[in-house]
Simulated assay, not measured.
Amino acid sequence: MAEILTLVGSLRTESVNSKFAQVAAASAPEGAAVTTFEGLEEIPFYNEDLDVEGKVPAKAAELRAAVAAADGLLLVTPEYNGTMPAVINNAIDWISRPFGASSATGTKAAVIGTSAGQYGGVWAHDDVRKSLKVAGAEVVEDATLAIGASYSRFAEVEPQDDAEVVEGIAKVVAALAGTTGATAPAELAEAAAR
């Protein structure tokens, strides 16, 4: 079973990126499971003084363990001020340490998301990919999805009802799971096509 861990860069209750993560879970091909890490906002900003045995905050230790156990990482994020949100940057800081022992080393990773701008957050996604590579992850370069104009596009349509979004997320999840299938499960695809 391929375990894919999702980290979401928006903390809003009704975040569209959180809904993308839900579509990712529903799009998991047979033999794969997608789960979202909850509580990124509870992790303090990375501080080397905290990163010593016996002092590592519980939620940061939980994140490291979850990333180490995952076969794939899916970061789902908007773009804030031309780059990644602080919560994603902080998560990568924690998983990249201690130096030389990143919990992301060798883990397949991909970045997707939606943002208000016309390009869907590609600057943020590029920055996240770069940071993940430095942290030791194996970024799947062609597993991408950036959907622009999120406020208008999803004003009346939920992501799970948008065929392009469902299909795009399914392709990324399949790439992370190491499967050749590039389509969403039939029920999800049929619902989105309506």
Results as ranks from 00 to 15, higher is better:
Met1Arg: 10
Met1Thr: 10
Leu5Arg: 07
Thr6Pro: 13
Leu7Arg: 01
Gly9Cys: 13
Glu14Trp: 10
Phe20Pro: 05
Phe20Val: 12
Gln22Tyr: 05
Ala28Ile: 10
Gly31Glu: 08
Ala32Leu: 08
Ala33Ile: 13
Phe37Asp: 12
Phe37His: 09
Phe37Asn: 12
Gly39Arg: 02
Gly39Asn: 12
Ile43His: 03
Pro44Gly: 12
Tyr46Ala: 12
Tyr46Arg: 05
Glu48Pro: 04
Asp49Cys: 10
Asp51Ser: 02
Val52Asn: 13
Glu53Gly: 07
Pro57Ile: 14
Ala58Gln: 09
Gly72Ser: 12
Leu73Cys: 06
Leu73Asn: 06
Gly82Ile: 09
Ile92Met: 01
Phe99Glu: 02
Ala101Leu: 03
Ala101His: 01
Ser102Leu: 03
Thr105Asp: 03
Thr105Ile: 03
Lys108Asn: 02
Ile112Glu: 00
Tyr119Met: 06
Gly120Asp: 01
Gly121Val: 02
Gly121Phe: 03
Gly121Thr: 01
Trp123Cys: 06
Lys133Tyr: 07
Ala135Glu: 08
Gly136Lys: 02
Asp142Cys: 02
Ala143Phe: 11
Thr144Asp: 10
Ala146Lys: 01
Gly148Glu: 08
Ser150Cys: 14
Arg153Lys: 15
Phe154Ala: 10
Phe154Arg: 03
Glu156Phe: 04
Glu164Ala: 15
Glu167Gln: 13
Glu167Ile: 10
Gly168Phe: 04
Ile169Lys: 05
Leu176Phe: 06
Leu176Gln: 08
Leu176His: 06
Ala177Asp: 12
Leu188Ile: 07
Ala193Gly: 14
